[in-house]
Simulated assay, not measured.
Amino acid sequence: MSKRILILTGDAVEALEVYYPYLRIMEEGYEAVIASPKRKVLRTVVHDFEGLDTYTEKPGYQLPAHISFSEVIPEGYSGLIIPGGRAPEYIRLDKHLPRIVSHFFDMNKPVGAICHAVLVLTALNKKWYFEGRTMTAYPACRFDVENLGAIYTTITPFVDGNLVSGQLWPDLPGLMREFLKLVNAQ
C-alpha cells in the first residue's frame, strides 16, 4: 500500500511551500492529502522580498483541499507537512488541530515544518514535545520556537528526530529531501 502524507494548511498559505511538497510527495509515488479547516478551494499567496524589511504578498494559485480537519484520521498517514505563509496563524485556532498534530509526535512519525509553521506547533498543549529540541523557522518566529522550549538555529533545513524544519521557501529542496528520508525509512 502506498504511503499517505498529510499536508495541513488553509487560505493564505505560501504557494511554493504547499505546492513544492505536494508535488514532491506525489513524485515519490505517495499520496498527498491536503487538509484545511473546511473542504474548499484555497487561495494561496506569493511572498517575496522586494526591498522592504519584510516580505510582500501577492495572490497565488488556487488549490483544492481534499478534506477538512474534522475528517482527518491521523493514524492513516505516514507523515505530516505544515507549510507556512499566513495560514498557520489562523488554522492553529481550529479545535481539531491539536488532535491531528499530536498524533505525529506521539507516534514519532515524520513532521516537516517550514517558515511560519511553528505557529501551528504552538497550538499543542504538550510543550514537552519540543523541550530541548532544536529547530528553525522564519527568523521573525524565533520567539515562537523558543517559547515552545526549543532551541532556535539558523541551520536550515534542520533535523531533530522526527522533526524537519526550514526557514523559507528556498529551503524546500533540502527540507523535502530530509523529510522523505524519514518517511522512506519507516
Results as ranks from 00 to 15, higher is better:
164 V>P: 05
156 T>Y: 08
111 V>L: 02
109 K>F: 01
51 G>R: 01
161 G>N: 11
79 G>R: 06
64 P>A: 12
92 R>Q: 11
138 Y>T: 04
123 A>V: 01
104 F>P: 00
1 M>L: 07
25 I>H: 03
94 D>N: 14
62 Q>R: 13
44 T>N: 05
186 Q>C: 10
51 G>A: 04
11 D>C: 03
106 D>V: 11
177 R>Q: 13
5 I>P: 00
146 E>I: 06
10 G>W: 06
31 E>F: 00
41 V>G: 00
37 P>A: 09
116 H>G: 03
150 A>W: 07
41 V>A: 12
75 E>M: 01
22 Y>E: 08
29 G>C: 12
1 M>T: 13
37 P>T: 07
35 A>E: 03
143 F>I: 02
47 H>N: 10
186 Q>L: 15
169 W>S: 13
101 V>S: 05
160 D>V: 06
68 S>E: 14
103 H>G: 05
181 K>W: 04
81 I>S: 01
22 Y>T: 05
76 G>T: 12
174 G>S: 05
11 D>M: 03
16 L>M: 14
4 R>E: 04
27 E>K: 14
43 R>G: 10
81 I>H: 03
8 L>A: 07
72 V>M: 04
127 K>M: 07
46 V>E: 13
52 L>D: 14
96 H>Y: 15
120 V>D: 09
129 Y>G: 09
